[in-house]
Amino acid sequence: MAPGNTPAPAPAPAPAPQPTDPAAAAAAIKKLHPRAYLARFLAAGVRPDARQPSHFRTLRITPSAVSTAHGSALAHLGQTTVLCAIKAEVAVPALDKPDRGFLVVNLDLPPLCSGKHRPGPPAAEAQALAHQFAGYVESAPIVDLAKLCIAERSACWVLYADLLCLNDDGNVLDAAVAALVAALRSVRLPRAEYDDDDGAVRASTDATNRPITLPILRTPVACSFAVVDNHLLADPTADEAALASASVTVLVDADRSADSDPLLAVTKRGGTPLSKPQLAQCIALARNRARAVSSAGLLA
């Protein structure tokens, strides 16, 4: 009797016994037939949150949100919230890179941020997302790791960038990239001295005495898209992402989004094939978005 897992091409309009509150009826259809609910909106060229398919949600950055960190930022992308805090410690440089420091990036999706995630070690999906994110940071370095060297072969800074999703309403990746860039820009390090005699690094513990900032090499902006029934939706919400058959993430350098080669990464996941014009549209939209984000001075 129940439609079960059939695709439900059209919402069987419930034989409403009484004309009920339209908002309640809409909420019921959304819950029972999420795909048909979204399809109705998309057919009219609009999304349930009143955005057009190519529109992104508003990005807001709150810098220096955590005072126990050397740099931090809170990024809101619509209702998706990611907190990034960076703590600096010292270590011995890697043998093959004696003049480089470390940037260790971890993106965590705790069970706090969404009903999807359960307690315990991160699920495969969360791990994959965290690795995709770390891969972006590794392939397109945001800071020059050579600046983190304190004494060659002996001591360097390790920046632990821990990103915590506080509310997952879809597209955590874009918010995470924005939070990381903003947090790296807010990093203030103390002047460190390496002592040859005892091999110790000393630095001022005074939080107000941190004069060193990090030179930023580039400003990546991630722009994700979801493919739902051959519609390309920019910056999908959690509801939209749950119905998507494929997702595309384009990483663009906002500092050179007008140049000929602004692309840092393109990732497409999921089974649906994507036509070449659609992919080109993703890239064009991402470049526009990067330009808008950088001209708004959000990541400056």
């Binding site: 410690e89 011995v92 470390f102 971890n106 991160p122 000393r202």
Partner: peptide, 18 residues
């Protein structure tokens, strides 16, 4: 399950006389 940095890292010692 996560990305680990170098095996050992410490917070720097305070400056002498601070």
């Amino acid at each position: 399950k996560r990305i680990n940095g170098p095996e050992v890292s410490v917070i720097p010692l305070p400056l002498q006389g601070e």
